[in-house]
Design a protein around this nucleic acid. Structure first.
Lengths: 345, 345
DNA sequence: CCACACGCAGTAAACGTTTACGGCAGTTGA
DNA sequence: TCAACTGCCGTAAACGTTTACTGCGTGTGG
């Protein structure tokens, strides 16, 4: 682990100046003889270019950051899986930040952009505060936000359409003849919780189904919490015949509880999740779920960022990824087809 | 996005030298009056320290790389989930590499250590070649390997014990009275495939159960492939009463096929997976699985690396994480308890 | 035979920090 | 009164690159 060779070492050994070494290493026009000498010296010494010094001079780090709320969340991981290869192909390294959904941490990430350790940032905040917007406006590197930002915010933005997603789910359940469609939601003070709750109400209204407060149960976005919420719901409204869950984990909790209560899925109660994570396809019965396009959003975000890194200025763009209802056994009554997801031992 | 202020800008505005600015910013002893002036100037200008220049001078990047075969693999993600917070707490950023299990890519990552864009590396190679060992010996920064390396390799090493893991599973099935225990394995030319296959054979021998070639089926480590393998197996050996699957995805494929074939799990056929990924807890029936301690290995690796980054030299260490059999409904006949995994919407 | 262009390579400055060193002003002690 | 010390601070070098500029030697055209 001794100090490695630098271009100075090479220059000495090859008997040329450091400028020539740099030119050769960067493929700039140089006499054949010089190229040969430099290459030989570099090989013998096992030279590797120092990325830090290079970045300092060139003002490019070839690194991009991705900040998400929680590395443990499958929805973010789906984004990550798409972002990674796109950046890699373009020669960028990926720096990961997990903010634990703490606003201060997110602001911190935005702030640290000023340190210039990355060329750009993709961020998916759980909620967008005033502080976020201020930092965004002052950001010293290109940023792409995954998630909704207020109209007029001058930033590249990729968003899902969870309202339409909820509508797809409600329509689907309605078309199956369900009329007692409950919603099991997460906290209403989160962005997804709020918008999904509202969308549920609207969708019912448009179908002419009266809104019944008893059919709404608030819990949290975790499996155990979801199960508890469903247990309460069942006790209060035994005639419920469909559950729209605000994410897949809640839905899995619902399946647990329904099974324990002896209710058949989907015959007695149909269940729909949201996010269409891997878990939806793995569960039994396989879970019908509203895909909010996590993967597509990740990909789009990476591409937007690259465009801005390579091209120059342009107007901020807004990409909206349409939701998709993935119908599986938990509503359809048919066994799920095996999926072709990949995993190595 | 204009050029941000540097210590020179601050020095001018505060009427002091850049050395004083640096001293103030680093908390070195300085007269109160000077501190005040510098801080004021820095605040007004919205100064943020340039991490690249700092790294160049200090020879520390405060970044650590984690190289895994595939971002899509839940086992690696489990490691990532542990590694991330440990590094974050110590003030390190995490750079992610996905090598797609391509040896050349892994060598590349090792090589790029010479670029000094990170202070250290955690790597989990699918197999370890001569080239790996050479690069490791010559590495210009501390490396921790997750997975087995040959005896005598001078590198920090965290490994699972999949042989013992297989034995736990076989013993468990045997103790349930199963005597026709089949193994559904991945390709034998992979490290996990080979060692798990051998361990299966040994475990049976030690129990005095004769080895029956017909009970071994080779497929691949994916769900669909696993399902196909199990279908063939069932056709060939209809009296099989237990399946040991080389990973969880294969096991999920097995559940699919068994269900379609009308075999009850675990009454007719007990099923065990390996890796104990999230999917095991999500499936129905919940999957008994051998945890190879992905999470623990990740944590241990991060801690070893930090130790080496902070402390100085010490002898390379070997940490072996014991496997653990997580018994769920697919062998026990009892419904799985709800787990407390976390996920946000 | 001279002016000029051209291809190549070396000198040196710059990127934004950290830090060794030396100097200055003020205090202390002989 | 002067040497020595102390507390602060400024000058400058260094980290390892990239690159503008300059200069040298050779070939070409007038």
């Amino acid at each position: 682990m001794a100090d490695g060779p630098t271009i100075t070492t090479i220059a000495e050994r090859a008997g040329v100046s450091i400028a020539s070494v740099s030119r050769v290493l960067n493929g700039l026009p140089t006499r054949q003889e010089t190229v040969r000498k430099v290459m030989a010296a570099a090989d013998e010494l096992g030279y590797v270019r120092n990325a830090v010094a290079r970045s300092l001079k060139s003002r490019r780090t070839h690194q991009v950051a991705f900040a998400m709320a929680d590395v443990g969340n499958p929805a973010y991981l789906a984004m990550l899986r798409q972002i990674q290869p796109v950046l890699k192909a373009a020669g960028y390294r990926l720096v990961l930040h997990s903010t634990d959904a703490v606003v201060a941490d997110e602001i911190d990430v935005l702030h640290s952009l000023g340190e210039r350790y990355v060329d750009g940032l993709i961020m998916s905040p759980l909620r967008v505060t005033e502080a976020h917007l201020e930092m965004l406006a002052a950001a010293r590197a290109p940023v792409v936000i995954i998630g909704s930002v207020p109209e007029g915010t001058r930033v590249d933005n990729v968003r899902a359409d969870s309202r339409t997603g909820v509508r797809l789910a409600v329509d689907h359940l309605y078309s199956l003849g369900r009329r007692r469609i409950a919603m099991v939601n997460g906290p209403l003070d989160t962005v997804p919780g709020a918008s999904r709750g509202e969308a549920y109400r609207e969708a019912l209204r448009d179908l002419g189904v009266p809104y019944d407060e008893d059919l709404v149960q608030i819990g949290d976005f975790y499996r155990a919490e979801g199960g508890r919420a469903v247990a309460e719901l069942l006790a209060r409204v035994p005639d419920v015949d469909a559950l729209l869950c605000a994410n897949d984990l809640i839905a899995l909790g619902a399946l647990d509880v329904l099974r324990a209560a002896g209710r058949r899925v989907p015959d007695d109660v149909a269940v729909v999740g949201m996010d269409d994570t891997d878990l939806a396809a793995a569960s039994w019965p396989a879970l019908t779920s509203v895909s909010l396009g996590s993967a597509e959003r990740g990909k789009a975000a990476a591409e937007l960022l690259l465009e801005r890194l390579q091209g120059g200025d342009r107007e901020p763009r807004l990409v909206t990824v349409p939701p998709r209802l993935v119908i599986r056994a938990s509503t359809a009554g048919e066994p799920a087809e095996t999926t072709d997801e990949r995993e190595r031992a």
